[in-house]
């Protein structure tokens, strides 16, 4: 029995890699839901961004243009969600479902039309991908006992989007809790009528939140296709948008907790890729299916309020109608 191998550096390293798309999508959902707009279309926005970032990165050879295209695609779907749920006061959940299907269908349709490779993009090479960044002194310190390997293998050597995602956590906290915009954004998710009375535009704030959500989902999707993997394949988000949604509930709509929740879920994904490690660590096999389902089971338990109740923003899901 080798319990410590569960926290092997390679496992922790893939935890970070797998947690990043979840974290970005989770923060995206956090902005949207804190403003009172439910978003179950995170999955679709990530998927659209993944395809368009990979496609444009392949066509132009520049991963940065790819990232831009991914964000644009995700923003377009966000705008649609805003139009349906804010302007036309439609059902936000149904709009999210529609966006997920729209992305699932359109990405394959366009991919087949552009590349004729059965709904995927060609593999990205060279500048078409985000390459790992080596932090200063990583190789020099590599042999320092203790800290060296952790710094070299775990902290250094990720793509720029990983560091960006991690920075987004304090940034989100600061925006939400230390700026006027953040205060209003949270208020509009709790009591839009009060915000309206104060003379601040509910519609404007909600659109802003939905757009921020689109940008973050765009980065998450681009990360999947141009950093984590080298190109787009059909349905490559594989339910990550919903795990992010689960993480958001798990984190009870708070930024730092979103980081912890997505790291936990990223860890579950990482060890489910290494059944050998689990077996040697605890002495018996754990079913992969159990590990796959664990984020969802944990979320249901949290939602049920058995371990600390998750209370969503009060005005979430309700279209705002001005009284006349």
């Amino acid at each position: 029995m080798d319990f410590l191998s569960l926290f092997d550096l390679s496992v922790l390293d893939s935890t970070v890699r797998l947690a990043v798309p979840l974290l970005l999508a989770c923060l995206a959902g956090l902005f949207s839901e804190r403003a009172g707009i439910f978003d179950i279309g995170l999955e679709g926005k990530m998927l659209a961004a993944a395809f368009f970032s990979a496609a444009v990165a392949h066509l132009t050879g520049s991963v940065w243009l790819g990232l831009l295209a991914g964000i644009t695609a995700s923003l377009a779907l966000s705008l649609l969600h805003g139009l349906a749920s804010i302007t036309f006061r439609g059902n936000q959940l149904i709009s999210g479902v529609a966006i997920n299907f729209l992305a699932a269908g359109m990405t394959v349709l366009v991919a087949q039309d552009w590349f004729h490779q059965g709904g995927r993009t060609p593999s990205l090479i060279g500048q078409g991908r985000f390459s790992p960044i080596e932090l200063p002194l990583a190789t020099t310190l590599k042999d320092t006992p203790g800290f060296g390997p952790v710094y070299h293998d775990l902290i250094s050597g990720h793509s720029v989007l990983v560091y960006l995602a991690l920075l987004m956590v304090p940034a989100t906290w600061w925006i939400l809790y230390r700026t006027r915009f953040g205060l209003r954004l949270r208020a509009v998710g709790e009591n839009p009528a009060a915000v309206d009375t104060a003379g601040v535009s509910v519609v404007g704030l909600r659109y802003a939140a939905v757009m921020i959500c689109g940008v973050l989902c765009g980065i998450a999707g681009a990360y999947l296709a141009t950093a984590l993997q080298a190109g787009f394949v059909k349905d490559m988000t594989a339910g990550r948008g919903f795990i992010a949604l689960a993480a958001l509930i798990f984190a009870k709509w708070r930024p730092w907790h979103a980081l912890y929740a997505t790291l936990l879920f990223g860890y579950l994904q990482a060890i489910s890729l290494r059944p050998d490690i689990i077996e040697s660590a605890i002495g018996f096999t754990v079913q992969i299916q159990l590990l796959d389902a664990l984020p969802y089971i944990l979320t249901v338990v949290i939602l049920a309020g058995f371990v600390g109740k998750a209370i969503p923003p009060r005005a979430g899901g309700e279209p705002y109608v001005k009284e006349r």
Binding site: G90, I94, F101, L102, A104, G105
Partner: peptide
């Protein structure tokens, strides 16, 4: 996947964009 797109559009227009 064209059918998935049509399905999405139907959900969008009959559901979310009903108004």
């Amino acid at each position: 996947e064209l059918i998935v797109v049509i399905q999405a559009l139907v959900i969008l227009f009959t559901g979310a964009l009903d108004n």
